[in-house]
Amino acid sequence: MPYTAEISRSNPTCFVFLVDQSASMSDPIGGEVPTSKASVVSDAINRLLTELSVKCAKEEGVRDYFHVAVVGYGHNNVGSAFGGALAGRDLVPLSQIADNPARVEERTKKIPDGAGGLVESTVRFPIWMDPVCNGGTPMRQALEYAHRLVDRWLGEHPACFPPIVLNLTDGEANDGDPTVPAAGICSLTSADGAVLLFNLHVSDAGGSPVTFPDTEAGLPDNYARTLFGMSSLLPSHMRSYTAQEGFTVSDSTRGFVYNADITSVVQFLDIGTRATDLR
């Protein structure tokens, strides 16, 4: 059965985040407070890294269940997007990521006081990367870069849970058709199944947010349809988690999210005790 390998310190897997840092990412997207696509994406990365660290935290510290790369693409080049002490590095063991954010920001937030009002409070928020946007969108190159990272990882960890490549973008690739290198990534396998390629599409094309759809009908534009088409089908245990979160799924459900939260991919990964299938 594919996608059942244990994720552990003796059998870790890897995560490659690809972050679109092209000029088009500076466009704002709607919402009450308009934010640039670039900050939506960097925010998502910082949240994902926090979520992974929390998930793998044990009594003695964060365990290296994962090695993680954050790869930026824009300005016609592709490379590590980590800031701070990790700058320039590709795959980094999770414990080092957890200990080395570029900085910890104190953010003031209005949070509900439980009695119907709001109170201002501060929360500490680790930051590994800041929004960057300039130049073109070498998505093809980025996918090829991820391919190399994952291929090397698989050579060293052939039996791992299949690595996950998560591409965060507005979809406007300008170095050729990304579907070819995307298919290349999905043709790599570990002993436990094919590498998973997921896409988070951040777009100002409007329409309602879509989470893990099983059809391209209802997607607003060609960019979204292309990204949907290059995304992997969700393995069955991930489908059942998605269903538990209240989404409708089928065996055509893909790892694609349009203008919605993607941090749930972290919940997809079983570490330790497994749940019963509550469906």
Binding site: V54, A57, K58, T273, R274, A275
Partner: peptide, 10 residues
């Protein structure tokens, strides 16, 4: 990092 320290299970 000065944030509440979790010990996580699944």
């Amino acid at each position: 990092l000065g944030r509440p320290k979790p010990i996580s299970g699944n």
